[in-house]
Write a protein that binds this DNA or RNA. Structure first.
Lengths: 139, 139
DNA sequence: GATAGGGGTTCCACTTGATGGAAGGTCAAT
DNA sequence: ATTGACCTTCCATCAAGTGGAACCCCTATC
């Protein structure tokens, strides 16, 4: 199968598939004309990668998950551990964003958004210099 | 003021400050010995940048916010608009992560995490190939 | 005067995960 | 023969820094 078909079937752009070959995630064969020739196995792997990436796993995680996927001697504990670490990363990211959101929403709410220059958003961004200065004086 | 002091006061690493100069966010003077010489104004700007970045604003947003900050003729509407777009980005990101989290948490929950190879996580990542295949047959 | 340390400087490479584009080869059909 | 849709490689670019090498500056101490 040529890269175009694989792209369609796996849902990944051809460019991405080439990139994945480049970094050693898939190793398609080559036809006589130099075109990449993908086996079903390669297509499966790419679809797997697409899913794993959609869950936010890093490329390195994907590499490891793929290895486990193809290793009959794996234990589900190994897989679970990778997933748990990722779950934790997601949780921390969500917490971080939620905090940002709260602060920003508060500021947006306080801002008139009119023709005047007075703006609590800018005021807040600027004011914190002093907080930092105070912190440093204290510390 | 030298870069080390500024780093401490603004809370930004010296490397980052140099980088910010590089991309034109701050323009410190130079002492006779070639050292960067930061005025209070520069330190304020850097602290401002630190805060804005902490709220997730992109460097380009920061550039614009800084411009507005220094422009007496600004309107709060301009500022608010940038902030609202950012708020929206955060919301979309949170939604995306929340969905990832739900899927992943479900899978982690279903996985025994023991010595056996059977793993719902891998099964899920692999199974979706077929969904895609079906989707493609249908479409 | 030499030297050690703790600043500072520049510049280049690397990170993550692709993506865009140029220049050119291949293939099927007209 | 030539169009158009494929495919190939390679190089550059994005965000937002970070790490490190090689080298300069300044002060204090021996």
């Amino acid at each position: 199968m040529n890269i175009g078909d694989v792209a369609e079937r796996s849902g990944l752009p051809a460019k991405t598939i080439r990139y994945y070959e480049d970094i050693g995630l898939v190793k398609p064969l080559r036809s006589a004309n130099g075109y990449r020739s993908f086996r079903d196995r390669d297509v499966h792997k790419l679809a797997f990668l697409g899913r794993a990436r959609a869950l936010g796993f890093s490329i390195e995680d994907c590499r490891n998950l793929l290895k486990l996927y193809e290793d009959d001697g794996r234990t589900s504990a190994e897989v679970k551990q990778i997933a748990e670490v990722q779950l934790d990363r997601i949780d921390r990211k969500i917490a971080e964003l939620t905090e940002m959101r709260a602060t920003l929403a508060h500021l947006v709410d306080a801002c008139a958004g009119d023709h005047r220059p007075d703006c609590p958003i800018l005021a807040d961004l600027a004011a914190k210099e002093e907080e930092i200065a105070l912190l440093n004086e204290a510390g």
